[in-house]
Design a protein around this nucleic acid. Structure first.
Lengths: 340, 340
DNA sequence: GCTGGCACTCCGACCGTGCGAGTGCCAGCA
DNA sequence: TGCTGGCACTCGCACGGTCGGAGTGCCAGC
């Protein structure tokens, strides 16, 4: 029916205007700024219906309309096309990420880039250990009876643990241990590594058994524990800047949630590469996030998502543009990490 | 003269009251809450003098007085004793920092702890590379013609760089290179390491020369470049919480400066271990920081500061308590890092 | 089913007032 | 000489009332 068609068009216009002006939008303004081909009065009728259906709402009786979370959802799902980035933007992304010297640097640049591009808070997850494999295991003797284990993953992450040993260790044993560990674990996925530790204990040469036993518990912890999944956050100044109004005055619960990391981490890791995921306002379980929207996507190669990245902002955000930015940045990051 | 004595006492009372209430403090309130032994009228005279000297000011004609930066400075220098932490607090610090698994974890916990203790933004610098020495250099072959250098410092920092080589490398050469590098650099301070590279080129066995040459430029960069000094920041929610008033409405310039890192980094690295440094408001050159105060101190052993840590907050902060917290945390962190 | 017109609602800006907190000054007193 | 109580004055701010404008819902007409 042509009615429904136009009503959706009205909703789209409302979302667009509200996002750009931050003012509740009235029927006259809509008719002026968009070519809807009908008069304000007709728009008013459509708006009444949209309100009844829960897509928009009015803050006060005689104010204009504002999209609800449900309205944004419909907009994102059916009314918007992901806006392609300009050539200049693409080039900026490339320039910005080029020349990064290590993983830390790549992710640091990524988060700054994303924050700058979207003017929102940007969040980037380190490549999950659980999806990485061992590239190299290094054993360094830092004291007579103390070793440092260094794990280097194929995604470039480096994790370290210090192990205290009951007795002094000689350098030869350290070298043997290193060889042993690497031949056992090199190329093994971290999720599978746990199972290999018992084997290792049995097959290790007699004189290394003790050492291996001591080291293995720490090893297990380093290899298997996927807990320590890190997050880089940037662009928090964007929160404080304009959005004070969007978050009923105070942004501090949101900042706290971001620093807490665990909540965002859970949300951001539920992604797969290529599909941009949008969570709007109340769709987020966590209380501090009910006023916010998340736009996330996985990065990595097509068949393997290394981690997630995305942005956090007010529900009143420019979804098409932000989705495009998030997707583009993720693609470049995936590319760069694949190369290194 | 007893006059001056009392006037300073009045200043101290003003600072204390203003810090705890955030209201300009008047002569009556002062007389009520403090045992100054004189009447409000007398206090008013003292206040007039203090104002003339620039230690306090009144926002409007008929409001109470508020300390100026100069007033805080005097307070910090002469009117306050660093408040010792309670036993509970000391124990909390210990508990909080214990059980950290690696450097990243230690600093992460430190920044959270400091933020929680002071209710301000906390800042912790990674141990400066320029003051660290090489503990171990690891060379990992990640592809036929690509090596990864991993530097482990005696302070537990791990830095990595990828090196592209013009030709494929065989595993034996990698092992030799590793031995060569470690015998050359182990225990060498990073500041001295640069000078050793040319030596290394000359003394290296013939068949390794090419490889060493390729690697050395990256090595130099990793070893010498002190640029990449990292910063961990936490507790930004504390900024958004109460301090909106303290920073004339918006905290976003401050947040931006914090994310920029470079400014804060410069300030925080000008410290030596043990002496708490306080910078108040206008004393900070950088514009975004003129409304803020920094309390910083170096951490590390007595004779060697590894890096700095501290807090950033409104000039209206509880200096004695915060100075105590910063100092105590730095001491514990130094201890922990010395052990590992 | 769309449109123009109209009455109605209600928020928010504006303004004027009064109160209270705080000051500066002065005369008196130890 | 220095402290004190008293007093007149200033000024910001909270309060309350008013007004205008934007926006709506509804209705009659096309």
């Amino acid at each position: 029916m042509a009615h429904d068609e136009r009503r959706l068009e009205v909703l789209r216009a409302i979302v667009q205007d509200f996002v750009s002006t931050n003012d509740p939008v009235g029927s006259r303004a809509l008719a002026d700024r968009h070519d809807l081909g009908v008069s304000p009065a007709t728009i008013r009728n459509d708006m009444a219906v949209l309100e009844e259906q829960g897509y928009i709402t009015q803050p006060h009786t005689s104010a204009g309309r504002v999209p609800t979370d449900k309205g944004y959802r419909l907009f994102v799902d059916r009314l918007s096309a992901v806006k392609p980035l300009s050539v200049a933007e693409r080039r900026a992304i490339e320039r910005f990420l080029d020349g990064a010297v290590d993983l830390h640097d790549v992710l640091g640049r990524t988060v700054r880039l994303l924050a700058q591009l979207t003017r929102q808070v940007a969040v980037v997850q380190y490549p999950t250990l659980s999806r990485s494999a061992v590239r190299h295991l290094e054993v360094v003797q830092v004291a007579a009876a103390r070793l440092m284990l260094v794990l280097i993953t194929d995604t470039g992450r480096v994790e370290q643990r210090v192990v205290d040993c009951p007795a002094d260790i000689d350098a030869g044993a350290v070298a043997e241990l290193r060889t042993l560990l690497n031949s056992a674990f090199s190329g093994v996925k971290l999720t599978d590594a746990g199972d290999k530790v018992p084997d290792l204990l049995e097959t290790a040469p007699q004189h290394l058994r003790g050492l291996v036993a001591t080291v293995s518990s720490t090893l297990l912890e380093t290899l298997v524990e996927p807990s320590e999944d890190r997050l880089v956050i940037g662009g928090t100044a964007n929160l404080a800047r304009g959005s004070a109004l969007d978050f009923q005055g105070t942004v501090s619960p949101l900042l706290e949630a971001l620093e807490e990391q665990v909540v965002v981490l859970r949300l951001i890791s539920e992604v797969d590469a290529g599909t941009v995921l949008v969570r709007i306002g109340e769709e987020n379980d966590h209380e501090a996030l009910t006023g916010a929207s998340l736009v996330t996507v996985g990065y990595g190669s097509r068949d393997r998502a290394l981690g997630g990245l995305g942005i956090v902002g007010p529900t009143r955000m420019d979804y098409p543009t932000n989705m495009a930015a998030v997707r583009a940045v993720a693609r470049y990051v995936g590319q760069i990490l694949a190369e290194s």
